[in-house]
Every structure is written in structure tokens, then in C-alpha cells.
Design a protein around this nucleic acid. Structure first.
Lengths: 337, 337
DNA sequence: CTGTTAGCGCATTCAT
DNA sequence: ATGAATGCGCTAACAG
């Protein structure tokens, strides 16, 4: 009972040097066919398996990537993580997980622990309120590359992959216009968010293409709480022009807005039509699914981010160029439309 | 440029032995206050941080637990993993992730890799078709404890936490009886599943309590595909007695069943009432949410399983007793009921 | 209270 | 083609 088989053990039994065994196991060219066979045979017989922790230690590499995100139970992130895990595994990397619960201090702590665990790299979607990025910048001193995805910090010299909401919004509004809607409201998110600005741009662009006038009062922002959304709805429904369609910031907002509309005795898809941004699963099971949704490709974002990170890990020290991929969001019609 | 600070470095600068420094850093009692201060001061100054990989290696412990489950994007599992991660983190453990995608060979591979990464323990919910458990049993030889949760293998000597569906079913059927329903159908899952048997028991028990006669033809099983469910519905609706309520195997089945009922021009909650088992999020957003749902506590299952595992890790070699916790499922009324 | 020594398992450099 | 020696960073057993 002396624990798992080690190289030393094999060496002893075969009267060889540890180094010889090590090389034989690695199919090193300078090892005699004869001994190599012997070694590998015995290794199999004794169920030899290299002690990864020793290798990690010695090689200063763990084949592990850390992933930090706000909340696993949000459908968007669980899809993203799925993409990450699949890609990482394909390249024989493991994935270490941590959720910030949208709390900056927790985020810092997790990053710290992951650094200590010597992850080779980090994939992160930052917490809602993270304003200080020092915990990420300090990683540079440790040569731990970071690729951000979806929720990216407002920094220039970073790697990231995100999804541009403008294209999807453009398509969404265009669709509504095609269908004859002329007074289209938008419940947007906080104005400082890049994603909000992109939505606004897309909206404007759609009008421009048709040479229609842009009415800024049709875009109201919500703090994304239920109350905020209801306030926004109140404002939109009170607009002097009759709003017949609404682009909601996301599926959650959409649901709250729909509820409000129902309370006002509006008939969905008749008096008023909703378009949203997909982040709820199973929209087919929803009471009033949005007429159409802007897809944000969480799985693909995770995939891409991982690929970039792996590339960074393969080509170390390439601190010069920053990878930033922006996927275009895309409008998807609800099933049966 | 000589990499991160090490203990050796500190020792040299202070003319101390490495061991002294190590002890000082750990607040070992037998170290002079004086030197301890010195050491800790210099450590801070040089930004000393222990190299965890070295420690892992040396201590044969990684403070990492592996978690293997079928599919992250299933709401049930993402909730469970949330509970796992939270609990693990609280105890300074990290979590290594792997999804089997319900594929046995992938499951085996993941377990293998995790073993190589020297995780301290494993938390697993097995793949749908896993029939051979050798990859789990071999872990015993490596002293890697495993705690199963939710989807547990049909083995005796294992640790697990699962949720007993009987209690919830009992409550569900009782509720329906209280409300005057007398002909209650049940769409059950494959009969060999423990969970299916538990549902049947709960159903029968509810009738017994009220001294009502059990009619086996009111329980039909579905293979859980949409078609299977529709067939089951067809059968139930054709029953000689008029079925006024149905207990569906889960939310997915429930949705398919509701759809079928609608096609037959039945009015939900009037002509026919549905009760289900919660595994969809946001049931409040569903078109026809079940009247009531049996809660399976994914977060708590994850939490409990983790606690057991941590306990196992704390008390090594306790291979005698097997922990198996069974939570009771519980009926929860739909919001607004 | 502190120093010395050894060793965890492996890859690797330098000999031979 | 093989062996011997070294070190990665840390802890711990054993001296003093």
C-alpha cells in the first residue's frame, strides 16, 4: 500500500534511471525500442498515471481556465458556459467556475482565488456594478490573460467578444415598419450602457433607411426593474401619437410590459405588438411571447471567447494586439410566425 | 525579473531558514514575535503569495471538487450548480465543471480527466443512459469520494442526495381531491425510473387516505417525448370516466399536455386542471402554468450534496457509513392561487 | 525559538 | 542510448 505508481517505482523495478523511464513514457526518440516497450508495458501493468499536480507545478501550467460571471442561473450565462466548456474540453482544458452574484467584492475575491489556483487564463463577464478594474489589471503581472465576454468593462486595451445590438435592433424596427407600424416605442436600458446606445442607434438607423423622422420621445429608458418598466409603459401609452409596437430591452422587461398592457385591456399582437431581445429560454412556453426576438448568441460568444483565450495561451507574450470580436445580433421570428 | 517571490527569496534576504519563514507566514506559535513581524512585513513588501500548485502537489490536495452533470443549460442543473458553487466557495473550495451531454462515454472521459486533475472529490448527476458504473467505482482506489445527486445510479453503497417525489405527489393529489376532483389522471414517466414509482405511490397514498378506490387505468406512462405525451393524453381523455385533473410528469410534459388539451377545445383550469413538477424557470411567464407545482429543490440538493462531500473530505477514510439524504418534494401553488 | 535535511513526482540538462 | 544530478516551492520531521 504505497499509493499510486510513480516513475521512480517503475525505474527501480526495471533497474533504469527515472529519466529514462520518463523519456520512454514520452516516446522520446533517443530511447531504445526495447526499453521503451518494457517501460510502457510495466507502466500499464502497474496502472501508472502521471501525477498531474506534479506536472502542473513543474510546468507552471494547469490546463485550467477560470470563468467568472454574474449568475449561472440566468439562461444567457448557462448557455454561454456551455459553449465555453465544450470548447475548452475539446482542447483538453478544464474549467473552473465562479459566480460573482453581481457583487464587485465577490468578483474580486474569486479572481484572487483563481489566480492563486494558477489558472492559465480567465474568461469573464463582469458584475453589473463593477467600476474598479484593478483586480483584472493586476493579472497582467502574473501573465494571466483575460478575455471578456458579453458584459465587458469600459476599457480599451482588452480582449473581448460581445454582441452588437445595433444590427438586431435595426432588423427588428425594420420589420415593424414593414408591417405598417409607424409609431414604435422603445423601452431601453440605462443610457450609459453600451448596449442601450446600440439599441438606440439601430432604431434610428431603421428610420433613416426609410427616411422617416426620428421622434426621441418614443424612446424611454427603464432601470430594468418591474416598476421602471411599468413607468416606461405608462409614458409610452400616454404618448400623443398612438404607439402600436414596442421594442423591449429584454425578455424580462418585455414580460413586465406585456403585463401592464394587458391590465390596460390592450390586446397583444393586435392593439400592440412586442419585440424583444432573447434571454429567456422556452419562449414558446410564454404566455405572450414576443412577436420576434433579437438573438444574442450566448453559446457562440462563449465559444469564441474560449478560442481567443486558447490562442492567447498558445502564443504567449503576444501582448501587442488585442482581439475584439463583435458578433452581430440578429432578428429571429417567434415560432409559427 | 525572477518571477514571483518565493519563500526561499525571503529567507535569503533575512538570513533565515526557509522553514522559519514558512512557519512565520503561518503564524506558527513557536516563532519569535520579532522574526514573525519581520518576515510578514517583507512578504507583504515583496508581494509574496504562496504558489498553490506547489502546495497542492506537496499536500496531495487541491481544494477543488469536480462536478459532472448532463446539461448546464437545463434550468434544474444550473440551479443545482449554483447551490454547489456557493457552498463550495464558502469553504474555500473551487469547482471544476464538466457536462456529459447525457453521453456515457463523455461522462467516463470527464471523470478520468478530473481524476487526473486530482480533484479532492466529485459531485455527479449521471447521464441518462449510463448503465456501467465502473468509472465511478474505480475512484475508490484513488480515494476520491463521490456524492451523487438527483440522478443517482442504481447502486447500494453510495452517497447521494435526491428528492423523493412521493410526498409532493401525495400533496398534489390531495389538493385536487379537496377541490372536488374525483377522476384524476396521471401522466407518469418510464416505469423503471424510481421517480415514476414514487409518483405512483404518492398518488395511491392520497386516495387511500380518503378511502377512495384506486383505478390503475388512470395512470398512463409517457416516454416523455411530445408524441408519447400526446398519446397519453389521448388515452386519458378517452377514459370512460371524465378526467377533470391531470398530474403531469414534469413541466415539459405538462406543456405538451396542455397544448393537446387546447387542441381538443378544453378550457384549462375549468374543464381540466393541471398539476406538475417544477423544472422550468419562470413558470409565471408560461402561457398556462400548472395550477400547482411540486418543487424539487435543485439549489438545496446541490447545497446538501456539497456539504456531504466536504464532510467526507474532512473525515477521510470513513468508508463505513453512506450518507443518503432524501429531501421531500413539496407542493407549491402557482402565484396568485 | 530556529536551522538542517529531506522529499513530494516530474522533466530536463549535462554527462557518459 | 542511458544515467546522474538538479530544481520547481513548499512543508515537515528531526535536530539543536
Amino acid at each position: 500500500m504505497k499509493g499510486p505508481t510513480t516513475i521512480k517505482e517503475i525505474a527501480k523495478r526495471l533497474n533504469l534511471a527515472k529519466s529514462t523511464v520518463s523519456r520512454a513514457l514520452h516516446d522520446h526518440p533517443s530511447i531504445g525500442l526495447r526499453t521503451r516497450m518494457q517501460v510502457q508495458a510495466l507502466a500499464k501493468e502497474l496502472h501508472y498515471e502521471p501525477n498531474q499536480t506534479a506536472i502542473f507545478f513543474q510546468q507552471k501550467k494547469t490546463f485550467t481556465i477560470g470563468i467568472v460571471l454574474p449568475e449561472l442561473s440566468e439562461a444567457f450565462f448557462s448557455a454561454a458556459i456551455s459553449g465555453i466548456e465544450d470548447t475548452a474540453n475539446k482542447h483538453n482544458y478544464m474549467v473552473l467556475l465562479g459566480q460573482s452574484h453581481d457583487d464587485e467584492s465577490r468578483e474580486k475575491k474569486i479572481v484572487e482565488i483563481m489566480k492563486n489556483h494558477r489558472v492559465d487564463g480567465l474568461l469573464v463577464s463582469i458584475a453589473k456594478n463593477t467600476a474598479d478594474y484593478s483586480h483584472f489589471e493586476m493579472l497582467k503581472h502574473y501573465d494571466i490573460p483575460v478575455v471578456f465576454f458579453d458584459r465587458i468593462p469600459n476599457l480599451t486595451d482588452i480582449h473581448y467578444v460581445a454582441c452588437n445590438m445595433q444590427s438586431g435592433t435595426l432588423q427588428a424596427v425594420s420589420l415593424l415598419l414593414e408591417q405598417g407600424h409607424r409609431v414604435i416605442g422603445m423601452i431601453n436600458g440605462p443610457e450609459k450602457l453600451i448596449a442601450s446606445q446600440q439599441r438606440t442607434s439601430g432604431y434610428q438607423q431603421a428610420l433613416q433607411k426609410r427616411r422617416l423622422k426620428f421622434d426621441a420621445s418614443l424612446i424611454v429608458s427603464s432601470d430594468l426593474t418591474k416598476e421602471g418598466t411599468r413607468a416606461a409603459m405608462r409614458q409610452l401609452l400616454a404618448h400623443k401619437r398612438k404607439v402600436t409596437a414596442i421594442v423591449a430591452f429584454n425578455d424580462y422587461v418585455s414580460q413586465d410590459a406585456v403585463q401592464y398592457a394587458l391590465e390596460q385591456h390592450l390586446e397583444i399582437n393586435k392593439d400592440i405588438t412586442f419585440v424583444s431581445y432573447a434571454n429567456l429560454p422556452l419562449s414558446s412556453y410564454m404566455a405572450y411571447p414576443p412577436f420576434a426576438s433579437v438573438e444574442q448568441y450566448p453559446y457562440q460568444q462563449g465559444q469564441k471567447a474560449t478560442e481567443i483565450l486558447l490562442e492567447l495561451l498558445a502564443a504567449p507574450g503576444k501582448t501587442d494586439t488585442f482581439h475584439n470580436i463583435t458578433l452581430d445580433s440578429r432578428l429571429v421570428l417567434a415560432p409559427g410566425r
